[in-house]
């Protein structure tokens, strides 16, 4: 999941009229994305500074940071933010630990079924979160696979409560994000020359040492890309907490949707959207700095 092609495109000699051609090719897409993506974000930010009159369910034009203050001073909302951050960190850590072996095996395999392996990792990504949530509902339900099996074996008397708990949400989000982590790691591990691993082994390094001293530092760009992507996706998860967490379980993305559609409080919804984006960005940058400082040592 790298965009090296854009960062290091081939250097092309400058010719006459080239600027014009480039502008003609690039302008339509740029203008479209600017209008359809940047302008909406600007308007949403402007809305987040407006006031909301609950009695009339109406937005009143203003320039105030009251919506942001409301969020950070009400424990109801800060708890939701904290839950979201906590789940996102946990999910990211588990994805890294579970994803690395699979990424390594996929990167190093010589099997002719490698493409099938990759398709089976990519397919769930595109099938959509609702469908995968449906799968977990079959597994976790009171008469679902896990409870029916455990009760059938006589291990438990009454069904485990898994559905509509935080556990179900975490298990669901990990499954949603694992493919992103595996693909990010796999693309970087594939670029690491196998002989550096063998060199470490032939110099007598045990596997653990080889991993920490050779593989981990070399795979760091992929680890960073994968953890950042996984973290962002977990912070913004919508369908999984909505379907597996039930109506009482709250994370940030469902909260935004709720403020927008149920409460029709656009200013507050906009503020929460920007709080979510900012917190995600800050935590990502912080983690980036810490990991890179560690690696530089």
């Amino acid at each position: 999941m790298t965009d090296t092609a854009i960062a290091h495109g081939p250097v092309v000699e400058k010719r006459r009229g080239e600027g014009l051609t480039a502008a003609a090719l690039l302008t339509p897409a740029t203008v479209f994305v600017a209008i359809a993506l940047l302008a909406p974000l600007v308007i949403l930010f402007r809305y987040s500074l407006n006031e909301f009159v609950p009695a009339r369910k109406m937005m009143v034009e203003a320039v105030t940071i009251a919506n942001y203050i409301k969020f950070f001073t009400d424990p109801y909302y800060t708890t939701i933010l904290w839950t979201t951050v906590r789940i996102a960190v946990l999910v990211t850590a588990v994805c890294l630990v579970l994803g690395f072996p699979l990424a390594y095996v996929v990167a190093r395999t010589q099997s002719r079924f490698k493409n099938l392996l990759i398709i089976s990792i990519v397919l769930p990504l595109f099938v959509g979160n609702s469908v995968r949530a449906a799968g977990w509902m079959v597994v976790f339900g009171n008469k679902g696979f896990v409870n029916a099996s455990l009760m059938g074996l006589g291990l438990i008397d009454k069904p485990f409560e898994i559905m509509f708990t935080e556990k179900a949400v975490i298990i669901g989000i990990i499954a949603v994000n694992l493919p992103f982590m595996v693909l990010s790691l796999q693309s970087v591990i594939e670029g690491i020359d196998r002989s550096v691993e063998e060199a470490a082994f032939s110099l007598g390094a045990p596997p653990a040492t080889m991993f920490w001293r050779v593989l981990w530092p070399l795979a760091l760009p992929g680890i960073l890309a994968g953890t950042i992507l996984t973290f962002i996706l977990a912070m913004n998860a919508y369908a999984t907490p909505f379907l597996l967490g039930g109506p009482l379980f709250k994370m940030m993305a469902p909260l935004i949707y709720n403020q927008f559609t149920q409460q029709t409080n656009w200013p507050f919804g906009g503020a929460i959207a920007f709080i979510l984006m900012t917190v995600t960005l800050l935590l990502t940058v912080a983690a980036n700095l810490i990991i890179q400082r560690r690696a530089a040592r």
Binding site: D3, I6, A29, T30, V33, A34, A36, L37, L38, A39, P40, L41, I43, L44, Y47, I232, M235, N236, Y238, A253, I256, Y257, F260, W266, G269, G270, A273, L276, M277, T280
Partner: peptide, 22 residues
């Protein structure tokens, strides 16, 4: 070119709300 790739990293819910108010 990063602007063109940006829709991949803006969260879906934020994208939706922003487009809605737009």
């Amino acid at each position: 070119s990063q602007l063109l790739l940006m829709p991949l990293i803006v969260p879906g819910v934020v994208l939706g709300t922003a487009m809605y108010v737009f």
